[in-house]
Write a protein that binds this DNA or RNA. Structure first.
Lengths: 209, 209, 209, 209
DNA sequence: AATGAATGAGCGTTCATTCAT
DNA sequence: CATGAATGAACGCTCATTCAT
């Protein structure tokens, strides 16, 4: 059920995503979205069929974009050494979660409304697992990694830790040096990335020389 | 503003928590809760003043219980060696999150409704950070730990990873051997706990003999 | 359907009257009344059967008292000259309306709820009409009054003017010299009384010598 | 905050006014109004924002119309003799109160809901007082009136008496010859008008030749 | 292709009243 | 005799959606 969206539709989806990530699906009324998007209240039903279908389209749209993005990324690290690849994967996941935190925010919160779509996200996660598995095995084979942790556990740690930081801003900011609103996000991202690098490479038994 | 609750009120809170964790605050109507609790629609206003106040009471009630529970737990590990203490802390946090996943589910999702109460959760997290800090320092001092990672990062990894597993059941269950509905939860909890033990001890540079 | 009331019941009726006169029948909840009377919410149904029946009892109670009161008053002027009697009647009606403005306030506002009871008020008004008729005829017979206006019109003017003043406080107070909250009511009562005396005696063609 | 209303809105306001005058603001539910107006329950909120705001608009609308109406009337009597002017004013006020008795019914009963709007009614009453004052003074100057009663007292008598008659139908109808429902109202209006003419001209010491 | 008016269902809450004690 | 817990109906209002244009 792929669909091409007009500019106007994408505009609506952007605003819907932001509001829903902030206030939840039920907490966000069609009127809220339309008012912020400067369109008529009837437009969401008109364009997408219903509020719920709009959610599906929004989800599809983002997953599609994300997959394309990941595809490109995967290409860029194809040639590197395992330790570099692992580092880049961590960096990529963390930055993507921070960048599209709106999306990832509502994915876990609001996916109950689009139960059948979860599969697409699942496929996407498995893509990561597969990639991590490759890298780990290659690293172990080449001797730079000592241990063989489960790739799904590595992914769990990376995504889980990052989302926790994003969602518990007022906890984590206690430990981030620069609390300036502008720079906080960057500092937080950096801190969680460093933590994950340390963590993951420790599990891998990475012997830096 | 502590409050004693009757059995009936606790019954309502239990059901409310479950539904809200599943379907969100706005997604759960007073009628849903009352219908499942076999009580009159007016009772929530009658007992708690309003739906919103019920949320506050629910939150208070759980945080209070959780703090008391943690207090007891902290006593039981007071005497042990750092490595044992760390192991027990991880085990404790993971098991608590699994046990009260309803609560932790709505805490991160629905806290916007009880903004002023967030501080209590913050205090609670800081309790953990403090405890972790003690254990890490003691372990480093006694030589069983080699490195000194930040306690807030350790906590982030533990809670983040566990919550991710809880909330992405149909991802994680792909990697859990026994998919029997009854045993799955236990297996999943065991798997994430093992992962975290490995992970945390690796970061600490724990030298097992 | 006469009824004897206990002190507690009278206490409730007093409070109910005040609140209903202020905020209307529907605007006053049973809870409001019970809360102000420091009694249980169930008491009004318990004592009076229902909120509506309470209204009936309240109405009966006040009309009864008022009739008794008027009876006494009628005795005191029995012996006087017509012009004195007329003066006293005006003074009496005005002062009673001011004194029991709570009651008269809700009588005209809330009588829609006790349609069948209007007869009692009607009887009461007719008592006044009869008395006024007597006085007018006596005065005409004795030559102190020149004209024979209809007694129901005299009553209409007296009650209508007084109630208008009571209910349009912020209009009439513009023309009352002393606006001090304490003395205003007395001044207003005095002013409307003087107006009515002038008015009624003018209609009667009273020739003061 | 003046507002133009559509025909549909005016239709709703008419029905709302009638019901509220009869049963009070709290006694009249939004459902009552909508049911009688054959519209959806949501329409009152949709058109006016809320039930309470509807009251304000209704009030504004009627006061505005009434002021315009009075303005026109004032023009028509500009040229006449004082005694003719006085007669016309009485006739006008009485007929207006009878015509718009719904409005005047709820104005005194329900103005607690639109506290801040009372001033507009006050202004309106003062317009009458001013006009009466002019007429009285002119009459006294030209010698047709002997006395100088206070204009606010004249207004009080006129409005008070008329409203009393309107609100105590089953009292006054005892004295109105033709009790036929159709003609009663006209007869009652006539009777109270005659009474007021007599009354007011007597107070003015009008010397008819 | 797009709108604004209008709808019916459902929301959280309050109501007068009843019930068990 | 009196209470406080509990009820079902109704409240004003907002919702996502549909309809007529």
């Amino acid at each position: 059920m792929r669909k091409k969206f007009t500019e106007k539709q994408i505009h609506i989806l952007d605003i819907a995503e932001e509001l829903i990530a902030k206030k939840g699906y039920e907490g966000t009324s069609v009127r809220d979205i339309c008012s912020k998007a400067n369109i008529n209240v009837a437009m969401i039903s008109y364009y997408f069929g219903s509020k719920e279908k709009m959610m599906s389209y929004l989800y599809q749209y983002r997953v599609l974009k994300t997959r394309e993005n990941f595809s490109e990324f995967a290409d860029t690290i194809k040639e590197g050494k395992p330790e570099m690849q692992m580092k880049e994967i961590i960096k990529y996941i963390v930055s993507q979660l921070f960048k599209y935190n709106y999306f990832h925010g509502f994915v876990t919160q609001e996916l109950r409304h689009t139960e059948n779509l979860k599969d697409e996200l699942l496929d996407f996660y498995q893509l990561f697992v597969k990639k991590l598995d490759e890298v780990i095995k290659k690293g172990v084979a080449s001797g730079v990694f000592t241990f063989t942790p489960k790739p799904e556990d590595i992914l769990t740690t990376i995504i889980g830790s990052t989302l926790f930081v994003i969602r518990n801003k007022n906890f984590y900011e206690l430990y981030v040096p620069n609390k300036n609103e502008e720079t906080y996000v960057k500092e937080a991202e950096k801190k969680v990335r460093m933590n994950l690098l340390l963590s993951v490479f420790a599990i891998l038994g990475y012997a830096a020389d």
